[in-house]
Amino acid sequence: MKDSLRRTLWISRVTFLEAVRQRFFAFLLVLSAAMVLSSVSLRVFDFGHGELKFIADFGFGGMFFFGSVLAVVMTAQLFFSEIDNKTALTLLAKPLSRPEFLLGKFFGAWAVLGVFVLVLAGLQGVVLWAREQELVAAAEQAGRIPTTFSIVGLCQLVLLQWLRLGVVIAIVLAISSLARTFLFTVVVGSLAVVAGQLQWIAQDAFLRPTDSPVYTAFLWVSTRLIPNLQQFNLADALVLGSAVVEEGALISVGFSGLAYLVAYLTLGSLIFRRREI
């Protein structure tokens, strides 16, 4: 068991080193950081949302969108580069099992996304804090109640977004295990992310009563197979306090995310074991 963990760790280490060297990662990180920083100057478009909300929405929107793009494209690239360059041949000829290889890829990619989320959240936190100080001072002068943001909420959001991206990586690896080409994986992976973000429609429909057993069965299957990624989008509630989120609910979301992660990694490992390299 210890040896297995070590091998997985070494694969993930090299995967991480390979990923952070990619220009694509640097490009998306810089682009997202630019979005976070530019949100302050773009607040002239704020139609009274509450300035902090506009800044937060702009920044977290970048994290969500570019994070998803990075998760899909980078994971597929990290997998297929090993297959196409035949480094997978060299590695899998060693006493390294296929699940260990896949898990190593997963943890390496997840670590990179962790860095991505952390850097952006840190930057976002600094921007929000700086603007919050100005708004608090102005509100105190005008005798108004100032709007503030929650650092604890920001930390909770970082964990949730990281977990969401982990689920996306696990799905993309499962698709990669079956797919023959990088392009197919990226297209299907992107569709899977969109399906995950819209899965709440099926979820809401399933919870409403219906007469058709076939329709109900279809909804039941789709709400189980496709993870509901929308449940991780709690930026407003956690960071800006627009709604109260109970601790138990957050833990429940976390567990469901982990469960999907494990399920898709297991599926990917099973498919990859049968793949001919």
Binding site: K86, T87, L89, T90, K94
Partner: peptide, 11 residues
Amino acid sequence: FLPEAPYFHKF
């Protein structure tokens, strides 16, 4: 094992 036309991580 040494595969044909080996390719390793350049970094």
